[in-house]
Design a protein around this nucleic acid. Structure first.
Lengths: 329, 329
DNA sequence: TTGTAGGCGTTATCAT
DNA sequence: ATGATAACGCCTACAA
């Protein structure tokens, strides 16, 4: 295994000099830079990131915290894109990434989690799918032991950035389009998880719209469950004009219910998952580039690890209809 | 940050003694074990895995190599389960895991990939979705620089194990059931990727069945593409009695085509992905526990890293029909 | 059975 | 500008 020592010997310089060249330190002559780089090329040398991590704390290992529910594949789809985006970008940025799931921290205290992350030399974390119930993770964020980027939860402090679309506006937009196009008045809104951040934001968007257009709205919590959305629709859908759902999965559930009830109501979803293309009927939905969001999250985390202050980052979205033939091509 | 040094001081023993206790070395008195363990508890100490990895090569960091195609979510579903199973098990086994994608090694030589993995102190890798075209990865396996478990590809050597179901038998089973139940004679078989390992095995299962039941079979390569399966079915499906597909996604494509052509033919798939529950029609398919397979793969890898020789591991499957109402509950 | 000391591959702090 | 050298936290002969 070729190490920095070999490179130093090959280039005829000291180890520390090689290190300086590798890490772009100032005060290195152009000449030695060339010598070292040549040696690196010839020996096909790649720095050992583990040793680097051990030696300097600031060499950032990053942990992805994914709130995965293995049951529902729609969620898998989104998480997979998150993971892919983050890891790809991390490779560009030369960061080391490990992926962890919320379930691993079940019944662990903040101290234990902190200790575990430290034992892994983790400097920064990205959290996907945080809800208000995840007390331990909240505490983790508050303590600011790690740099942190939270996707889709509005938490910002000196060491924590938040990233995501404007859910309120997005929900407003897609619902407005659906409602205006179909000239509806009575809205059934199936909201997400009771304690999810996005749930509140999206609901706020709906309230704004209801007020503006002078609609009536019945709000029910679907918990992001397809089955619950289905049941809610069966129970309350008949005397409403439109079913607005806070997620695609619930929209699919609602749509299936309506089909079974043999009545038509426009339905709109949220997220733009590919599954939407498979269910037969087309619906309006909010399409996000999850992979892209995750890449941005990783960039933001790097900035944080470089000392920048936490901030709020907004990403973009579009209103779309997922069509089967578009998806399979 | 509490280190092994602190524990040693707290327990009143030497650092090496603590290390021995931690790693279950023999020749440590019960008394000191207790002293050390108490100190570990009290200080809430967790060994720094990075330092451990640096210090001893055999302390295993593991890389997951996933052949992810971000486009098709059905694949995402499977990969996500693979990743989840592997990482969860790794946590149990106290192994450090990083996830990598084939795409990261695009246009890299074996040496570069090897060097990269070494730079990450990787001792073992699990490869998901290997096809014959991935020359670099093959070379990597052949060189045996790393312990390796290959999921769904029959490669075994001293440091490499293979794991997966018996694809030939599974394909035989599900096709036989579908064909017998519907009394078919003329089979359209839509195979997978031209150079996939599983493709050949599954095809062999079909040939076996065709001979046994004296059927006629037309084989077409669908490349695991839903669209291609759709087109193939449109072109050749009409004068066949049954469409057997080497993947669920293709089965869905075939089914959609048949629906559009307004003819009925039994269709069967392979994999048991959740998406199958959404497409309306039920089909026979081979259901695998991907998460479970991946857990086994991780266990196998650990065995390899402990010096055991490579072997072939078979996992189980069932014939199933994916129903919408089962899935959403 | 326990402790000492050298090393893993880097980074970082000093002298030089 | 360059080069020794001491950490980083842990493992592991080897010595006691």
């Amino acid at each position: 295994m070729v190490s920095i020592k070999d490179v130093a010997k090959h280039a005829g310089v000291a180890i520390s000099t090689v290190s300086k060249v590798l890490n772009n330190y100032p005060n290195v002559s152009e000449e030695t830079k060339i010598k070292v780089n040549t040696a690196v090329e010839e020996l096909n040398f790649v720095p050992n990131s583990v040793a680097a991590a051990l030696s300097s704390k600031r060499t950032g290992r990053v942990a992805l915290l994914v709130n995965l529910s293995v049951k529902t594949q729609a969620v898998d789809e989104i998480d997979m894109q998150y993971i892919h985006g983050a890891i790809s970008k991390a490779m560009d940025l030369n960061l080391d990434v490990i992926t962890l799931f919320f379930s691993m921290f079940k019944d662990r205290t903040v101290e234990e989690v902190t200790r575990y992350l430290q034992s892994q030399s983790i400097a920064g974390i990205i959290i996907y799918g945080l809800s208000k119930e995840d007390k331990v993770l909240h505490e983790l964020i508050v303590r600011q032991e790690f740099k942190c980027v939270v996707v889709d939860a509005p938490i910002v402090n000196e060491n924590t950035s938040s990233i995501g679309i404007d859910h309120q506006k997005a929900q407003y937009d897609v619902a407005k389009k659906t409602i205006m196009d179909n000239n509806c008045r009575r809205v059934l809104y199936i909201a997400g998880k009771r304690n999810g951040y996005v749930t509140d934001e999206r609901l706020a968007g709906m309230r704004e719209l209801v007020e503006e257009l002078e609609l009536t709205m019945l709000v029910k919590n679907g918990e992001f469950s397809e089955l619950q959305a289905r049941n809610i629709t069966m129970k309350y859908g008949r005397n409403k004009d439109v079913v607005v759902c806070a997620s695609d999965l619930m929209a699919i559930g609602a749509m299936k219910a309506l089909t079974e009830m043999d009545i038509f109501r426009p339905v709109c979803g949220f997220d733009g998952i590919i599954l939407m293309g498979y269910v037969g009927k087309q619906m309006n939905t909010i399409r996000q580039d999850f992979s892209g969001v995750s890449e941005k999250a990783m960039e933001e985390l790097q900035q944080l690890m470089c000392g920048r202050c936490g901030q709020n980052v907004r990403t973009s979205y579009t209103i779309a209809r997922m069509k089967y033939m578009d998806i399979i091509c």
